[in-house]
Structure formats: structure tokens, C-alpha cells
Design a binder for these strands. Sequence first.
DNA 1: GGATCCAATGTGTACGTTCACACGATACAC
DNA 2: GTGTATCGTGTGAACGTACACATTGGATCC
Lengths: 352, 352
Amino acid sequence: MANQHERDGAQTDAAPGGKATRPPSIIDVAAVANVSYQTVSRVLNGHPSVRPETRLAVLDAVEKLDYRPSNAARTLKTGRSRTLGVLVLDIADSDGLTSLYGIEHSARELGYFVGIGALDSIDRGSIQAAVGRLAEQSIAGLLIIAPIEAASDALSALPSSLPVVAIEGSSTSTVSSVGIDQAAGARVATEHLLTLGHKTVFHVGGPAEWMQTQDRLTGWRAALEAAGAEVPMSLPGDWTAQSGYEAGLLLSRMTDMTAVFAGNDQMALGLLLAFSERGLAVPGDVSVVGFDDGADAPYYNPPLTTVRQDFREVGRRAIELLVGKVEGGERAAQHVVVEPELIVRRSSASPR
Amino acid sequence: MANQHERDGAQTDAAPGGKATRPPSIIDVAAVANVSYQTVSRVLNGHPSVRPETRLAVLDAVEKLDYRPSNAARTLKTGRSRTLGVLVLDIADSDGLTSLYGIEHSARELGYFVGIGALDSIDRGSIQAAVGRLAEQSIAGLLIIAPIEAASDALSALPSSLPVVAIEGSSTSTVSSVGIDQAAGARVATEHLLTLGHKTVFHVGGPAEWMQTQDRLTGWRAALEAAGAEVPMSLPGDWTAQSGYEAGLLLSRMTDMTAVFAGNDQMALGLLLAFSERGLAVPGDVSVVGFDDGADAPYYNPPLTTVRQDFREVGRRAIELLVGKVEGGERAAQHVVVEPELIVRRSSASPR
DNA sequence: GGATCCAATGTGTACGTTCACACGATACAC
DNA sequence: GTGTATCGTGTGAACGTACACATTGGATCC
């Protein structure tokens, strides 16, 4: 690996051992293009009054030197960066991470860079610390994926100058949010089971502190009440397949249980296993509906009827909203709702 | 955008109703602490020769003003930032994203910030473009999660001054890598099935261009050959449960098929469904072993015997390696291997 | 006692960029 | 011909930080 420097004419205060040569600056470009650095700046920022001929010369020089503007310098001078901070709650819920793809993609399209920070826990202090770390990056806006009541709380304590959007945040909060209409999803899922002829529908929910837990509970109950069905007690889970399994063992001992709406796919998977072990056929003896439509849901045994959440879309919308705030200075809290979709597969059927 | 806000007022720290005042600088801190800005800098950077009393005064001022060093200014001055770029291949493989948590956590501990870039596709141009975007952030190092041959290829075309570590990259490449010993995992999985008494083990692999596909294939074949077992043709999959399902339909028509090693859990899930539909009992008629030990694997029906990959650990090690390169100037390619672990559950048993 | 050294702190400068202005041309009006 | 817009371009600052050096005061040395 005999690697050599290509250019050593420039002022390289190179350390011994052949450290990197300084990347080209706007001044280097100006020198090559035979203009002043300010003209280069104008070209790069799309300022109108530059002669086409000059612009071309500059662009040529940029190309030739493989020049890239220093984000650090721009940020320092302007005070605002084109970096968006994304705070994610460090929990095994990897589905939520899918929205990261939507987030990055949209951010990139709009010319923003995405930095991430993980949240160890959800207390106010932890969020403050994470935001503090992001603040050092002079982030232009903050996106938070932490669908917990406490998060919403801590968010309102942030400096009001920082645009913030929460994914799956409280829709009544003063911070803007983008989320899926959890209640509607739960309602549709429950109605689906009722329409099939089930007398009532049991529910396995998530942890109480999660936003979705409450919303899905509400939707489920609303559907039951609207149909005049009895509202059974809901079982508490924690999103894991294990908690679904345990709930399944419990439910399988109930005689009048023919349909269960699980708070997410993983818990539905646990239900499926529990019912199978107890000799209950799905959907013959009991119907199961999940929530999320994760990648595996179509291949559960049986394939799972569930409510699809378009995480990418949520990420996309969240960035659009956030960038709107950053650039437009929109201050009022907005709440964007993405509609979920019921995906009917083979885990739900009419009771026999 | 003609409405420029004039904020020429004095640098008031907390103007009670005021608009976005500039964040406090090192000079503001110095003023409050009654020292020069240089002394503040020394305190912040842990320079030894500062009187404890002075240090305390500075720290007090920092606290009081809620001062945060400007990453932009530091980056501009030093030329190196404390931002690490992470390039992820935009594919539904959300398990791999789990390593992001390990990555962020370790990076944070070492004082680094993590920026992400998604890769739309895996051609050289796409990677170059993504790296270019990250380069504008003056990233100190690059981590790439794209276990594809082509990635390794494109990586070697990067400027040699940028420290790079690949997750699950080729262990023969000139770029350093951290990965799980895929071949060992495959070997253990296959040996497990052979030890149970199966005559041979079928394999459903991943897409040819993925690194892991090749390695797992190699391990599987090595185990079979070492045991003197016949080596059946391996079926090609694409990591999705669907491809596993399709492979399962095919395999279920073979008479001598009693054990299958799937390239990942999702394909194993597809196998399970296919076998179930074909009336093949697992593990009664056929044993199935997966790879990954995703969150759901313990609750498949039956719970899946699989090979555990510790993604978080991989992320952690990758950051350690990368930061070592960044700070220590280590140039030689290193290849860190994390050992996987066989998790025996109920999907594998002796043939009857 | 003066010279020497070190600890503790302060003063300049540069990093690469953008912003506010100044400057020279050309153009058009009178 | 002089005045005044307008265009294209250049000059001088400044952003917040780290580094090289300069400057103190005091302790140690002989």
C-alpha cells in the first residue's frame, strides 16, 4: 500500500506519517476559477446576479477539485445547520425503526442531514440530556420517536425556539405530532371481528404508559359499545410475544372467548402459540387480529389478520412537517394523522 | 425571504419574552467566570494547569448559562469532527437496525455523535454519493452496514484518509470489519441437526450477493462433509418469509427430507407455515433451525431453534474499532469476529 | 541574590463560510 | 455630459473555537 499524496502544492501543514491533506476550500475553488471567493459563494447559493459564463467556470472548478462546502463553517456563520436530530427510544421495538428510512429519505431530499440519539430511558432528565447532546450539533429541528406520555411532558420543557415534531405523540400536546390513527385502527379491527359474528372481542393491550395503548383501548371499547356488545376486561401486555403468550394461556381457559384483538403483532404471535398448545384452533375456535402488519405477519401460522401501519409514510410526513417548521417558521402545533388499513388474512373467521 | 430579523441587541442570556437569542459562547462563559475565554477552553478540554478554584468558577458559569460548546466551531478549527457516519442499506431487514442502538450507545460513551445515511441501492455510485453527503459533515469515520459484495468493492475506492469499518463486511477485504462468524454459526446449527440423528440437512440460503449467504453456505457444507453426510442442493431464498414458504412447499415434496437449516428466522417462519399446511409436523416429521434469534423466534409455532446473533455487540465493537482508528490512527485492516450461539428450542428433534 | 523554571492565565490568529457593504462598469435617462 | 439605477464582482468583517505563543507571579536552585 504505497499511497501518495496527489497535491502537495497547497499549504499542507501535514503531520508526519502522511495525514490527510486539507480538503479544498471555497478559496481554492475561487483561485482555480479566477474569481473571488464571494463569487463562488454566490454560485453555490444560487444568487441570481452572476454571469452564466462565470458560473460555469466556478462549477468547473468545483468539479475539478471535488469541492464540498464545509458544513461546519456554514453552520458557524449562519447559526443554523441543516442537521435534524432524531431521538429514538432504545427499546426492542425495531418496527418503529422502519420509520427511520422514511425519515432519512425525506430529509435527504430536502437537503437535510439526520443525526440520531438514543434514549436510555424516558424520564425527563434523560430526554433533556439527549436534547443537550443534539444541541451541540446546532440541530435545526428535532424529531422524537418515543410514544410515551412522559416524553410529551418533557418535550414541552424544551426551548421554544427549537422546532419539534413527535412521532406517535399525544395529539393534544402543544408539540406537533405525526401518527397513525390508533383508535381508528383498533375500531376497524374490532368491528371486523364483530361483523364476522363474534359476540364480543377480548383485548390484549400494551404497557399503560404508551400512547398507543390508550388509543387502541379506546377504539376497541368504542367499537364494542357501538355494537352493543359486552366489554370484557382487557389484559395487560408489554408488546412482547411472551406477554401475548401468557395472556393466551389465561384466555384459553375462558369459555366464551371466540375472538381476541391483540395490541400488536408480536403479542398476537404469542397468542397463536398459546392457543395452539391448548388445542384451540385459529380461526376455528378463536379468531385473532393483530396490529402493525410487520414483515412476518403474513407468514404466521395462520397468516395474521392485522392493522397495517405505514411507518415509512409516518417518517416522511414527520420530516415534511418538521422542515416546514424549520424553514417556514410555523409555530402552531399541528397533528398529522395517517390512516391505518385493515389487512384480512386467515387468523379471523366467523365463530362456529 | 426578505424578512430578516434584526437581532443586534446585546447578548442577553435570558431575555424573558425575547426572540431566539444566540446561544452562549465560550466568551460569555469567560465573562461570567471572570477569566479569559482561553481558560474556559482549557477547563473544557481537561487541560491540567488550571487552578481548581478557577475550574470551579468556570464550571459554575457553564452550568449557569447552560453553555454547550459549538460543535461547528470546533470542527471548523480542528478539521476533525466528532461525528461518525453510519451508512445503512435501505432494506426491510430491520433486525440489522438493532445494531444502531449498540452503535449509538458506544459512540455516545466515547463522545461521538452519529449521523445516518440510507443507501437506496448498492451500486458504487450510490455509495459514493452517500459518502459524499456525509463528507460535507466532516465525519471523522464511517461505518457501513451493507453486507453486500458490491459494498466492499465500492468502499475500497474511498479516500484512504477516512477511517472505515464495515459491519458484516468481507473478512478478506482491505477495509476493517466487525461481524458475526457466520460460518461457525451455520456449522453449529448443522452439527446440531446431524447430532440429533438426521441423515442430512437441507439448506435455504439468502440472496447470492449477500456476504452472509456465502458464509452460511460454507459452514453448512463443511459440517455435512465433516460428518460424511450427503450434501443436498441448497435452495435460494431472499431472506423473506415468503421465500421460505415457497422453499418449504418445494421441500415438503421430498421424501428424504427430515431437517432444514434456514438462512434466517424469517425464512424459517415461512418453512414452518408451509410444512404445517402440508401436514408435516415440526419437529415430528421435520426439524427446522433458523438464524438470527430475532425477538419473535421464541414464540414461533413451535418455538424456533436458531443461532443467536448479538447485533448490539456487533455495533458496539464496530464503534470501538472505528474510534480506535480515528483517534489512534491505526491503518491496518482488522477483522473482529463475534461468536454466535446456538439456541435450542422446540423446532428441532431426533427423526422418528 | 539573581537566574531559572513551571504553573496559571491572557493575547493573537486562523479555520471556511456568509453577510453587509463598497466598488467598477455598463446602461439609460435627462 | 453628468447623474442615477442596475448588474457583476470584490473587500472586510464576523461566527465560536483551538492552537501557538506571550505574559505574569511565585517557587526552586545555586
